[in-house]
Nucleic acid binder design. Structure first.
Lengths: 136, 136
DNA sequence: AAGTTATATCGGAGAATACCGATTTGTATG
DNA sequence: CATACAAATCGGTATTCTCCGATATAACTT
């Protein structure tokens, strides 16, 4: 499907550690798992936590549909209720999850609460995911 | 925290429908939810499905750590086992989820199976999510 | 104040996920 | 062929998530 070098790096971001490791270790080695350099590959806890919060928030169909609906500008909770065709309490709790995650912001006007995308980076995120998802 | 226009659009992607709607409808309207134009805001099913598949796959700490570990180049399953400090069956099933979602590719060499990032867009996705996540 | 509409929160049942030991499959090697 | 190691799959339990009715809070109306 894609252009994969049959060995070595997949992009330019790496600091050569992976590639070097593979090349320097003996070709016919009979074990690969007892390697102290693996320590280097462990991800930072805070980074993972930040990513996880975002992905968990977006890993739900109704919440995704809310964000997609907000592409065209702000909407109030009851409009989103109509778009999703879901009960009020369901929509409301999804909205509060999205707000807690910082994906959407709110603006209160009279008895209505309007929701909007907080950061256009969220939309880039959806676009990337859509592109990744349909050629799987 | 961020630069939000206090009303109106959040970016340039919208086709003005949201903004116009809000402006043209009466200021003191007492209902906002019975609007036929809301139909326009419903997202395409296939797009949502594609996005959902990607986000669900990445909405797990161990799978995220696997992808992060693969930033530096390919690794075999048992190396990932060591990095995650998780039982073999657990790691293996996470890897097959990642492969099914098209996030990683595999290369078999002898008795080892090496995993690598299938598309660098996945890494952009993680970077975006990390950026969105830590200033929430 | 009483009524109406919009939204948030609570609580608990049902569904989906994650986890991990045990077993199976695959590959090399003595 | 027996053994050893890597990896995948199976089965069941534990945890988390989703959903939605019921209830609470808030703002506007008469």
């Amino acid at each position: 499907m894609s252009d994969l070098p049959s060995s070595g790096s997949t992009d330019g971001t790496e600091s050569a550690s992976g590639t070097l490791r593979r090349l320097e270790s003996d070709e016919a080695g009979d074990s690969c798992c007892d390697d102290p350099i693996l320590e280097t590959r462990r991800a930072d806890d805070e980074t993972v936590a930040a990513e996880l919060a975002v992905f968990k928030t977006l890993a739900n169909e109704k919440r995704l549909r809310i964000v997609e609906a907000l592409r065209g500008g702000e909407l109030c909770a009851c409009e989103l209720e109509a778009i999703l065709d879901a009960p009020q309490s369901t929509v409301s709790s999804h909205l509060s999850r999205l707000r807690e995650a910082g994906i959407v912001n709110t603006r209160k006007e009279g008895k209505w609460t309007y929701y909007r995308i907080a950061d256009t980076a969220s939309l880039q995120l959806l676009d990337l995911a859509a592109a990744l998802g349909d050629d799987s």
